[in-house]
Amino acid sequence: MLLQLDFSTATPIYQQIRDQIVRGIAEGELAPGERLPTVRALASECGVNAMTVSKAYQLLKQEGHVRGDRRGGTFVCEPDGSSDPNPGIVDALRMRLAELVAGGMSGKEVLALCERLLDEIAYR
């Protein structure tokens, strides 16, 4: 699993790992049931501390993107099919939309941007 980590940004490395795995799931690069590398293997591949990868995996588990345990491995979860989005994600999206509007974008421009970004995701 090749991740592109930026060590010069303010975004924590564990968050970058989490974000790229979520993006991989959304874009179909990581299929439901697919086994993720072990914490140690991914840490070695990325050149980061194993605790950093462990923190990313724990966050992914809490969010329901992956499942597993120490002995069996970590696997991508099947989508639950629920049409009710996570309230925390909705709140974060609401804030990002407010930031775009506060920055001067119109509602139409925001919707066009959202459509363009959704089109970039292969798996829906």
Rank of each mutant, 00 (worst) to 15 (best):
I13A: 07
G73D: 03
K108E: 14
G73H: 01
P85S: 11
R18A: 12
G104E: 09
A41T: 15
A26L: 15
R18G: 00
A98R: 07
L36H: 05
I13F: 02
R116Q: 14
S8C: 03
G103P: 04
G33M: 06
L3W: 06
G107R: 05
R70F: 04
I89G: 06
K108T: 13
G88H: 10
Q15D: 06
E78A: 03
D19T: 08
M51N: 00
D69I: 02
L93G: 01
M105L: 14
I89C: 01
A92S: 11
N49K: 13
G47A: 12
T74H: 02
P32M: 10
L59P: 00
G28E: 08
P79E: 02
A26S: 12
V110F: 02
N86P: 04
L100R: 11
G47Q: 13
Q15L: 10
H65L: 02
A122F: 14
R23F: 11
T11R: 13
M95L: 06
L36T: 07
A122C: 05
L113R: 12
S106Q: 04
P37Y: 10
E63R: 11
L60R: 03
A31Q: 14
A10V: 08
R71K: 10
E27R: 14
Y57M: 05
V110D: 02
V101S: 07
M105G: 01
K108F: 05
F7I: 11
E120H: 02
D6W: 04
A122H: 11
L117M: 08
M95I: 07
V39E: 14
C46Q: 15
D119I: 01
D69L: 04
T9M: 08
T52I: 09
S82Y: 04
G68K: 03
C114L: 14
G64Y: 05
D119A: 11
S54W: 02
D91L: 14
L5V: 14
E120R: 13
L97S: 00
G28K: 12
F7N: 10
F75H: 05
R70G: 05
M1H: 13
V39T: 15
G103K: 04
L117V: 12
F7D: 08
S83Y: 11
S54N: 12
L111R: 14
E78N: 03
A102M: 03
P85F: 06
N49C: 06
D6Q: 13
D84Q: 15
P12H: 08
V22C: 05
T9R: 09
R116I: 06
N86I: 09
